[in-house]
Amino acid sequence: MLSKYLLLNHIKTFFLLLMVLIGILYAYMIGEVFLVFKNRNPEVVLSYSLNFLPTAFFYSGAFVNALALLVALRRLFQRKIDLLIQSFGISPLRFFSFAIFFSLFLSIFNLFGSYWLYPQSQKRLFSIEKEYKKAKEIEKGIVRNLWLTQEKNGEKEFYNFELVDLSTGKVHGFYLLKVKDGSITQVATAETGEWHGEMLDFPEASLKDLSTGEEKLQKLTFEFIDLSQIGPLAEKPEHLSMRELFVLSLLGKGIGINYRQYAYELSKRTLTSFLPLFMSLIVGWVYIRWRSLKLGLFALVVSFSAHWFFINLIRSTIENTNLSLPLILLLYAPIPILSLKGLYDLSKGFRV
C-alpha cells in the first residue's frame, strides 16, 4: 500500500515538474519562432512544437525524474515515515522500489523512443529550422562527396562520388583509384552513371593503367554494395534509427566509411536512455544515506553533468584516437558503478 502511494505521488510530481520545465522551454521556443523564423504561419509553429516535445522529454526526463524523487523522499522524511519503516526492519531498497520501478520504465520507454521517434523528431526540427529559420532549401535523398573503399585480391579500391541521387540512382562525378602494395595501379573517371541495386554502370569512363601508361575510354560496370545501404549516409547520425545506426556500424569497415561516428551515436542513445535509472539510484542513495537535501541536489546536478561530460569525452576520444570503442566506453564506467554502489548500500539498510 505504501509503495503504491509513493509511486503515484512520485508520478504526479514528475509530470508536474515536467510540465513546468517544458512550459519554460516552450515559452523560449515560441519567442524564437516569432523573432527569428522567416515563416511564422500556424502550421510551422504547430509542427515545430509537436516535434520539440519528444526531444525535450528525452534529454530532460532523467533530470526531472531525479528531482521528483528528491521531492517525494523529502515529504517522506518530513512525516517521519522513514523512521516507522525502519522500526519494522524494512530496508530502504524495499520502499525505494517505487523509484526504481518508475525509473526503469522511463529508461525502457526512452530506449524504444530512441529507436525511431526521437531521431525522427530531431530530424524534423532540423529541417524546419534550416528551411524557415535559415531560409535554406533542404536537399532530400542526395549524398555529396561520398568516399568508399573495398579490398579485392590484395588490391584496395577507393571510390569517390561527387553526387548520388538516391531516388533515381543517378551518379555524377565518379572517381576510382586502385592501389596495390602501396602503389597506384589504375585510375578511372566518369561524368555520369547509374547505381541500381548492387550494380554501378557508367556508359563512358576514362581508364588509365599507370603501369603501362595506356589510357582508353570504355563502358565500366561493376558490383558493389546495395544503393539502399547508402541511403543513411545522406542523414546526420542523430537523425537515423537505431537499426540504421547498427547496420552502418557493422558495414563501416567493409565499405570504408567512418563507422565509429555511428557506433558512438548508438552508444550515446543507449546510455542516455538508461540515465533515469542511473540517476535515481545515485540521488536516492545519497539523500537517504546522509539525510541532506543539499547533498541530494548536489548529487543530482553532478550526476547529470557528469553524464554529458563523459558522453562528450567519449565523442572527442573517438574522433581523435584509434582506440577501440569498447575501451573508450569504459570512460563512462563511474556512473553505472556509482549507481550499483547505491543499489548495494540501499539493500543493506539505513545505517550504511
Rank of each mutant, 00 (worst) to 15 (best):
F304R: 02
S267I: 12
K170G: 00
K123L: 12
E238A: 02
R124F: 09
L277D: 03
V71N: 01
I288A: 03
L176E: 10
F278V: 03
F88E: 12
I24D: 10
K136W: 11
I257R: 04
E319Q: 14
F52K: 01
Y28P: 04
E194I: 13
Y118H: 09
F109V: 08
I85H: 02
D165S: 13
K208D: 02
F158A: 07
N145A: 13
T272L: 14
L207H: 00
F274A: 00
I337H: 05
G349E: 03
G169P: 01
G254H: 14
I230R: 02
G254E: 15
P42L: 13
H307E: 08
L35Y: 06
V283S: 05
L106H: 04
Q150Y: 15
I11P: 01
K180I: 07
F14P: 00
K253P: 08
F112A: 11
S206L: 14
L16M: 10
F112I: 15
K156T: 15
L117H: 01
A205Y: 03
E151K: 15
L106D: 02
S47A: 14
G182Q: 07
E223I: 10
T321Q: 07
T189I: 08
F222G: 01
F304L: 04
P336W: 05
F96M: 13
S305D: 00
L220I: 13
T13Y: 09
E265A: 06
G256R: 03
N320D: 11
R124C: 06
K216V: 09
I85C: 08
S339A: 15
G173K: 12
N39G: 14
F109H: 03
L233M: 09
W285Y: 15
P276Q: 09
L146N: 04
D165T: 11
L277V: 07
E244F: 05
D165H: 13
N312M: 06
E238M: 05
P119D: 02
S324C: 03
L217P: 04
T55A: 15
K268E: 10
I225V: 15
Y259P: 04
I90C: 09
I22D: 00
V301N: 00
E214C: 02
H10Q: 12
N258Y: 10
R269V: 06
S167Q: 13
A27P: 03
I337T: 14
S292P: 02
V33N: 12
N145E: 15
N322T: 12
F57I: 15
R269T: 06
L313Q: 12
P336N: 04
G197F: 11
R74C: 08
G113F: 01
A27L: 12
G169Q: 03
F350E: 00
F304C: 00
L176C: 11
L8I: 08
L330E: 11
L300P: 01
K80L: 10
P334V: 05
L111C: 09
L176A: 14
V352I: 13
L125R: 05
